[in-house]
Amino acid sequence: MGKLGDMADKAKEMAKGHPDQADKGVAGAERLADERTNDKYDAQTDKAADAARRSYGGSGTPEH
């Protein structure tokens, strides 16, 4: 696996160990994307954030 894949695996493992912090990071990234696009892609960012949370067992509670 390449460096990017290794980094992604490390990030997932860290998120699984610290789901509350990961949830905050996902919420922040989602909020930033929504702000930068004037909520044009809100449904897509919601879906992506939910998928990210499921990947590490996060709370699944979006923080808008």
Score class of each variant (00 low, 15 high):
Met1Val: 06
Gly2Arg: 08
Gly2Trp: 09
Lys3Phe: 13
Gly5Asp: 05
Asp6Asn: 04
Asp6Ile: 08
Met7Tyr: 07
Ala8Arg: 10
Asp9Lys: 15
Lys10Ile: 09
Lys12Ser: 01
Lys12Leu: 15
Lys12Met: 09
Glu13Tyr: 01
Glu13Trp: 01
Met14Ile: 11
Met14Cys: 00
Met14Ser: 00
Met14Ala: 11
Ala15Asp: 02
Ala15Gly: 05
Lys16Ser: 03
Gly17Gln: 02
Gly17Thr: 00
His18Thr: 03
His18Ile: 01
Pro19Met: 10
Pro19His: 06
Asp20Gln: 14
Asp20Phe: 06
Gln21Ser: 10
Gln21Arg: 10
Ala22Ile: 06
Asp23Ile: 06
Asp23Gln: 09
Asp23Glu: 07
Lys24Asn: 12
Gly25His: 12
Gly25Asn: 11
Val26Pro: 02
Val26Ile: 14
Val26Cys: 06
Val26Ser: 07
Ala27Met: 10
Ala27Ile: 06
Ala27Phe: 05
Glu30Gln: 14
Glu30Pro: 00
Glu30Tyr: 13
Leu32Pro: 00
Ala33His: 09
Ala33Arg: 12
Ala33Pro: 00
Asp34Ala: 12
Asp34Glu: 05
Glu35Asp: 09
Glu35Leu: 14
Glu35Asn: 11
Thr37Gly: 01
Asp39Trp: 12
Lys40Gln: 08
Lys40Ile: 01
Asp42Ser: 11
Ala43Asp: 05
Gln44Gly: 00
Asp46Met: 06
Asp46Pro: 01
Lys47Val: 02
Ala48Met: 13
Asp50Glu: 14
Asp50Trp: 01
Asp50Met: 10
Ala51Arg: 08
Ala51Met: 05
Ala51Asp: 03
Ala52Arg: 06
Ala52Cys: 09
Ala52Ile: 11
Arg54Asn: 08
Arg54Met: 10
Arg54Phe: 05
Ser55Asp: 13
Tyr56Cys: 02
Tyr56Trp: 02
Gly58Arg: 12
Gly58Gln: 09
Ser59Lys: 14
Gly60His: 12
Gly60Asn: 10
Gly60Cys: 12
Thr61Arg: 15
Pro62Gly: 13
Pro62Trp: 07
Pro62His: 14
Glu63Trp: 13
His64Arg: 15
His64Cys: 03
His64Phe: 12
His64Met: 10
